[in-house]
Design a protein around this nucleic acid. Structure first.
Lengths: 367, 367
DNA sequence: CTGAAAGCGCTAACAA
DNA sequence: TTGTTAGCGCTTTCAG
């Protein structure tokens, strides 16, 4: 394994010249550069990352702190990760995924205080996330994916829930729906102040009121069963509902199963729009779900760019940005019954509950 | 941030003594050790990973090469990852997950030739996996999760498909089933020579023949739709089937849905056993799936231990080990209809007890 | 059992 | 535009 010394010797220049060719930290004449490059190529030189890191106090490693529970990683998260990894790689950084959640503070401390990380991205951010404190204390630049309760002085990227909800409601209202129910996260989750639950609730209310409609929100546990229960409640509170907007991927499949069980076809009797969903998951349902596609990979790229700005400019100005989900109309939404543009009915629901179970298996976590 | 110098000064010893206290590479008197430890505690000393790595030529970083496709990570893979991460952490190593598949050779080369990795674990191993060549060429110790076509000189850990299939078949035969269909991966996958598909195919044939039964295998695409199609084929080819053994988690849910659609109840009319399945997923079905629980976390731990043996003992002897999946009987298997031990029929068909399924899934954690 | 000192391979002043 | 050189913080001989 060739070192910089070897390259310098072969190119008949000093090591610093080789170093500067590599880092571009000072101008090098074309002739010299070519010599050096040739020598590097001949020796198949690759800089030693550890030595470089020690000397420059920069590991060129970014950490993606990613709690991993027994449910695995959803398509949305995966898209985020790959987007981030690609962006990091482009910038010459390595992105290491560390399965570190709010409960693994010691492991995080170890990683961070060993000066192994130039910066960190936090996923699954809690309202009061202790990982933020640890990293700040250790002086590690960070960017949140999501938002803590207090975001002053913190950079983050997150989904623009306001706009996402507004567009989803707009889609349904545009189709002619008037009685739209919003199935949110659980009551506990909302009570805890979980960001996405609160924000979508408020956004839904605003959007409905803006259209002169009455907003009805039903909380649901984050599971298919929760979705079922929510539907029962919804039908009781609003027997005339023609459309449902659902916040979480798990519940939406339960909703669909229960709708079929009640003999209501989708989208003929009831339109369903799923929020913050990945195309892959949306396609699993029958009919495929009209959904607000989550901007996973774009978010990942953006998060890395933001983080690198902090890393490079020694903690510059904070950057907080929201990205909306994009509406993608598939088969689960259409005009309400009795409307001009009414579409043909769905075929008979074979055995809906198994459908739902299958989908749940393939469905995973929220964005 | 305190350095070793600071610790040495405070403890009134030399830096090398501090180093030896840390590494344990040579005996230190208890008195000295205590002084040093006290000083480290007082200064909250944490060794600089990069400096240590440069001096020792060991990064103490292990790479988990983990291709990430748009489908995300299943529960089985996640269990593997967390098991491996825990084992690495225990051994004082960091496990970095790199989203590197067979198509990301340049990124892998960059990572490996920069001496960043002391070793690597390869997931989703292909029969002819170019990542193996790259790592070998660069002298990076590796352990496969799975197997290439030629495993001479390669360490690996993998699922013991022979034994897993044999036990699954044994379970069904023991219940009295004679007509058992095996739903494998897709025909293409089998044709490509994908290890698990080939091995389970052969193991199934062997097991059935061993019981004096006729083996019938049906290929299925890795999706719910594939499972549905497979069931139709199976019922045509073997209308008298009483049990199904299914290889993949996606297809099995399609199978179940289609079975119900055909009015065949599980397990009364047809028993279903799912292979290489995580408990979490198995609990999602109704009835919960009798399954061969995959040893995800144990495999992860084992893989790390194997890799560390290579890393520590400068590439010692190779180690190839298989772990079987453990049979866990749940509700989807029982004696065939008309058998002495026939069990009572399932209740209400229309919308079976999804509530219960959810509760079980929520309350029960993996083994 | 402990210390002194020579690097590990690179970066970044400081000079020229 | 290039070279010289002093570290970065640690490990590991070589002495004692």
């Amino acid at each position: 394994m060739a070192t910089m010394q070897d390259v310098a010797r072969l190119a008949r220049v000093s090591v610093s010249t080789v170093s500067y060719v590599l880092t571009g930290a000072r101008p090098i004449s074309q002739a010299t550069r070519d010599k050096v490059l040739a020598a590097m190529a001949e020796l198949e030189y690759q800089p030693n990352a550890l030595a470089r890191g020690l000397a420059s106090r920069r590991s060129r490693i970014l950490g993606l702190l990613l709690p991993m529970d027994e449910r695995g990683l959803g398509a949305t998260e995966t898209a985020f990760v790959t987007g981030a990894a690609a962006a990091a790689s482009t910038a010459g950084y390595h992105l290491v995924l560390a399965p570190i959640g709010v409960g693994d503070l010691d492991e995080l401390r170890r990683l961070a205080s060993q000066r192994m990380l130039d910066g960190a991205l936090l996923m699954e951010v809690q309202l009061h996330d202790p990982r933020v404190d640890v990293l700040r204390e250790l002086g590690v630049p960070l960017v949140l994916i999501g938002r803590t309760a207090d975001t002053t002085g913190l950079s983050y990227v997150d989904i623009d829930f306001d706009r996402t909800v507004s567009e989803a409601v707009g889609h349904l209202v545009g189709l002619g729906h008037r009685r739209i129910v919003y199935v949110n996260h659980s009551a506990d989750t909302i009570a805890e102040g979980y960001g996405p639950a609160r924000r979508t609730r408020d956004a839904f209310t605003a959007a409905m009121v803006g259209h002169g409609l009455e907003p009805l929100m039903i909380p649901a546990e984050d599971s298919a069963a929760g979705g079922r229960a929510a539907l029962v409640t919804a039908l009781r509170q609003a027997p005339d509902l023609t459309a449902i907007l659902a916040m979480n991927e798990s519940a939406v499949f339960g909703l669909l199963g229960e709708l079929a069980g009640h003999g209501r076809s989708v989208p003929h009797d009831v339109s369903v729009v799923s929020m913050v969903t990945s195309p892959h998951v949306a396609e699993l349902a029958t009919p495929a779900l009209t959904a607000m596609n989550s901007p996973g990979s774009a978010l990942g790229r953006l998060a890395i760019e933001t983080l690198l700005r902090h890393v490079d400019s020694g903690d510059g100005e904070i950057h907080q940005q929201l990205l909306p989900c994009a509406l993608e109309v598939r088969g689960s939404s259409g005009p309400p019954r009795g409307t001009a543009g009414e579409i043909t009915q769905n075929q008979g629901p074979a055995v809906p509950d198994m459908e739902a179970a299958r989908r749940r298996a393939a469905t995973r976590r929220r964005a």
